[in-house]
């Protein structure tokens, strides 16, 4: 199989693995910006609106909305009236959901496209084993919320009204021990359009895909070589079924094919355009636009991933 991975504009470094089974092209595009220039914040939370090709970036209680060109078009939430916002999600209708805390109590705040509060949704009918559930990550997919507690290693799904649907305790599912709760925590969390949960756990140097029936597939090995994991962060699946995993230490995004074999990685650690400095999270839309958050006040870098 001929490898056809090319370096893109502005020198994005791509390294191919022996298992490359498809042709990928990654190009650094720009950093999310407003009319004054790049927005230089550390580690935003990002969520994509697949219907409208917009991306939402949360940083310090302010939600910024960017159009498909990466230009900020709206912002809201820059006060504490709706609580301390820890995550953001968007549904097919364009409703915006904010996972928010007030007085140490979590709630999902539903807002309209202007960020105006429409309803406050609390989790209901949680089973006793999830009574201590403290979510800090949220995805809206397939008509329901997927909520995760990254340090508690639990996942809960709930309907639009907050009614409990399913719960997963990752400690037994990942073959961990109870003492690992709190020591092993999620570094990345997302849900693909089919409802599969994607996760990384940095201290295990591993990534996981949990299917709808709770079956878990692990992949990745520790190491510095291409395809190996140093300190893993965000994880997401693209339209083609490839899984993208952020490596914080390498400053790279590793791409695995739908069978979870390593294909290639793009970007390197550094401060030049197209490089990444301690990246944290990522999101990808249906056009192959990859949004990667990072440290060093370098904002959210945007790449375009294409398949030849």
């Amino acid at each position: 199989m001929r490898l056809c991975i090319t370096s893109a504009i502005l020198g994005v470094t791509l390294v191919a693995g022996p298992a490359a089974a498809q042709s990928l092209r990654a190009a650094y595009l720009y950093t999310l910006s407003d009319f004054t220039g790049s927005i230089r914040v550390d580690w935003s939370r990002v969520a994509v609106d697949r219907q409208r090709n917009e991306v939402y970036a949360l940083h310090q209680n302010t939600v910024r909305v960017f159009n498909e060109s990466g230009m900020e078009v709206y912002r809201f939430g820059d006060d504490l009236d709706i609580g301390h916002i820890v995550d953001v999600a968007v549904d097919d209708r364009g409703d915006v959901f904010l996972l928010s805390y007030r007085d140490s109590k979590a709630a999902i705040v539903r807002c309209n496209y202007r960020g105006e509060l429409q309803a406050r949704i609390t989790l209901k009918r949680l089973p006793a084993e999830f009574s201590d559930f403290v979510p800090n990550r949220m995805v809206f997919q397939q008509g329901r919320f997927f909520l995760a507690s990254s340090s508690g290693l639990k996942i809960v799904t709930a309907d639009r009204d907050g009614h409990f649907v399913e719960g997963f305790d990752l400690v037994p599912l990942l073959d961990l021990e109870e003492q690992d709760r709190g020591s092993a925590e999620l570094g990345g969390f997302s849900v693909d359009p089919a409802g599969n949960v994607l996760m990384t756990i940095p201290v295990l140097f591993r990534a996981f895909v949990m299917s709808r029936d709770g079956t878990v597939t692990a992949f990745g090995r520790a190491g510095s070589a291409p395809g190996r994991f140093n300190i893993v962060g965000g994880i997401a699946r693209d339209r083609e079924g490839n899984v993208l995993v952020v490596d914080k230490a390498k400053g790279a995004v590793l791409v695995f094919d739908p069978t979870l074999k390593f294909v290639s990685q793009f970007a390197t650690r550094g401060s030049k355009p197209g490089q990444l400095l301690t990246p944290g999270d990522l999101a990808i839309d249906d056009r192959g636009t990859v949004y990667v958050t990072q440290a060093g006040k370098r904002g959210v870098s945007v790449f375009r991933l294409t398949h030849d």
Partner: peptide, 25 residues
């Protein structure tokens, strides 16, 4: 790289630093 993690909602295990994103004004 390990002792700070964006997204914390409260005291979390071995974390010794809170990310700026999690502590607005």
């Amino acid at each position: 790289n390990c002792h700070q993690h964006t997204g914390d909602t409260g005291p979390t295990s071995y974390h010794s630093s809170t990310a700026p994103a999690d502590m607005p004004a």
